[in-house]
Simulated assay, not measured.
Amino acid sequence: MPNSFNELPKITFRKFRLSTFLFTNNDLIRTRVSQAVTILDSMINKKTYSQLSPTGSREEKELYVVDPSIIKKKESDIGALLNSDKFLVLLYGGPADHLITAQSVRHVVNSEIEPDELASIIGDLAGIKNMDRAPRLSQREKEILQYYGRGYTLKAIGYELGISPKSAETYKSRACRKLGLTGRAAVLRFIDPSVARQNTLH
């Protein structure tokens, strides 16, 4: 496959490993797809999902998430990808135009989709059956994770949001439990993978 694709972490399921690749220059798309992969990986590797698929040979699958807005610049790189029915392609962001009829395109989503919804779509495309919808965070839980992942103490979070430190802890714990995250570093990787790579806390 083209070198211009960025490989995201593999999702390991009992039946197969799903390798996800991303083709975009858009930081928002890159972050949201990374978040969706994190959510899906957490969901399907919980004990309750380990029974969904029979044991046996492990199938290797590949999913390519492509930002249509940059295809014209890279058309020679991904022509074979779009025109083969052997691949799974998700078009994300940017105008899709005629590309939605390409053989490999399985789904098209707009740039406003939330990471949890995207996680469910990726799961569906990968063929994970009987999967519950991805967990949804409340607005307060999202706010707490943003602060917590960037190094704020529970007391400081409470001060910023006008709630008690105990309430901040409750929201934080609930959000982490929904997403299968443990520790501040995992939260940071979830809320902003690019910041996590730089190992920076504010």
Score class of each variant (00 low, 15 high):
residue 35 Q to W: 06
residue 4 S to H: 04
residue 122 I to G: 07
residue 11 I to S: 03
residue 121 I to T: 09
residue 86 K to S: 04
residue 109 V to A: 13
residue 197 R to I: 11
residue 15 K to P: 02
residue 100 I to C: 03
residue 158 G to K: 03
residue 153 T to H: 05
residue 48 T to P: 11
residue 135 P to L: 07
residue 35 Q to D: 11
residue 25 N to L: 13
residue 87 F to D: 12
residue 195 V to K: 02
residue 127 G to A: 01
residue 2 P to R: 06
residue 84 S to Q: 03
residue 143 E to I: 05
residue 3 N to Y: 14
residue 133 R to I: 12
residue 200 T to E: 00
residue 68 P to D: 09
residue 14 R to Y: 11
residue 153 T to N: 02
residue 143 E to C: 00
residue 78 I to D: 13
residue 70 I to D: 15
residue 191 I to W: 05
residue 160 E to C: 00
residue 48 T to E: 14
residue 151 G to D: 00
residue 99 L to D: 12
residue 1 M to C: 00
residue 95 P to L: 13
residue 166 K to F: 03
residue 26 N to E: 14
residue 94 G to I: 15
residue 48 T to Y: 09
residue 76 S to K: 09
residue 1 M to E: 00
residue 48 T to D: 03
residue 141 E to P: 02
residue 114 E to M: 07
residue 4 S to D: 15
residue 73 K to W: 02
residue 85 D to F: 07
residue 72 K to G: 15
residue 68 P to M: 14
residue 166 K to S: 14
residue 133 R to T: 15
residue 43 M to L: 12
residue 54 P to M: 14
residue 139 Q to C: 03
residue 31 T to Y: 01
residue 13 F to L: 05
residue 123 G to P: 12
residue 4 S to Y: 08
residue 176 C to H: 02
residue 196 A to L: 09
residue 123 G to F: 11
residue 6 N to Y: 11
residue 72 K to W: 15
residue 145 L to H: 01
residue 34 S to N: 07
residue 191 I to S: 05
residue 180 G to A: 00
residue 10 K to A: 10
residue 126 A to F: 08
residue 186 A to K: 01
residue 190 F to S: 05
residue 137 L to C: 07
residue 131 M to C: 15
residue 114 E to D: 13
residue 201 L to D: 04
residue 79 G to L: 04
residue 200 T to N: 00
residue 197 R to N: 07
residue 60 E to V: 05
